[in-house]
Simulated assay, not measured.
Amino acid sequence: MSKTRRTFTPEDRYSIVQESLRDGHSETCRKYNLSPSLLRKWRNRYLNKGKEGLRDSYPRVDPQVRALEEENERLKRIIAKQALEIEVKSELLKKTPIGLRKS
């Protein structure tokens, strides 16, 4: 049986931490099937930073924004390649004698 990753909102974390402070650490871990270290981490964050400490520490990136960023990077690479080609061609034209240039 594979374990699925559960996600908890900051409000869920807050209520679980409050319950652990009220009813006890091990009881709450058993009730919600949490590892004691995870609940201890949430509890320490709450005690140090308050409710703000229970928020996600990493920003969630919208998939649409991520796709746009990837497209932007791809287009930047294309433009850089074209700029390099233009620069190389202009350097070659400077070195080519005028009589040999095609018009």
Rank of each mutant, 00 (worst) to 15 (best):
E11C: 05
R13A: 00
Y14L: 15
I16L: 08
I16P: 13
I16D: 05
I16W: 14
I16Q: 13
V17C: 03
V17A: 00
V17P: 00
Q18Y: 00
Q18G: 12
E19W: 09
E19S: 15
E19M: 15
E19L: 15
S20Q: 15
S20D: 14
L21S: 11
D23W: 14
D23V: 14
D23F: 14
G24T: 12
G24H: 12
G24M: 09
G24E: 13
G24Q: 11
H25V: 00
S26Y: 03
E27K: 13
E27G: 10
T28M: 02
T28R: 05
C29V: 03
C29Q: 07
C29K: 04
C29R: 06
C29P: 05
C29E: 01
R30M: 11
R30N: 12
R30Y: 11
K31L: 11
Y32G: 04
Y32A: 00
Y32T: 00
N33Q: 04
N33R: 10
N33V: 05
N33G: 11
N33Y: 11
L34M: 08
L34Y: 05
L34K: 08
L34D: 09
S35M: 02
S35L: 08
P36Q: 13
P36M: 05
S37N: 10
S37D: 11
S37L: 05
S37V: 03
S37R: 10
S37K: 05
S37C: 05
L38P: 02
L38K: 01
L38H: 07
L38Y: 06
L39A: 05
L39D: 02
R40S: 15
R40L: 11
R40F: 08
K41A: 09
K41H: 10
K41T: 11
W42C: 05
W42L: 04
W42P: 01
W42Y: 06
W42T: 06
R43Q: 08
R43M: 00
R43I: 04
R43S: 14
R43K: 08
N44Y: 05
N44V: 02
N44I: 00
R45V: 01
R45M: 03
Y46M: 10
L47Q: 13
N48S: 13
N48W: 09
K49V: 01
K49M: 10
G50K: 04
E52R: 07
E52A: 15
E52F: 03
G53H: 04
G53E: 14
L54V: 07
L54M: 07
R55I: 01
D56R: 13
D56W: 14
D56S: 14
S57V: 06
S57Y: 12
S57M: 12
S57C: 10
Y58C: 01
Y58S: 06
R60Q: 12
R60T: 12
R60W: 07
R60F: 07
R60D: 10
V61R: 10
D62V: 01
D62E: 15
D62L: 06
D62I: 04
Q64M: 09
V65G: 03
V65S: 02
R66P: 04
R66A: 14
A67N: 02
L68M: 07
L68E: 15
E69L: 09
E69D: 12
E69V: 04
E69T: 01
E69Y: 00
E69F: 00
E70Y: 08
E70M: 11
E70D: 14
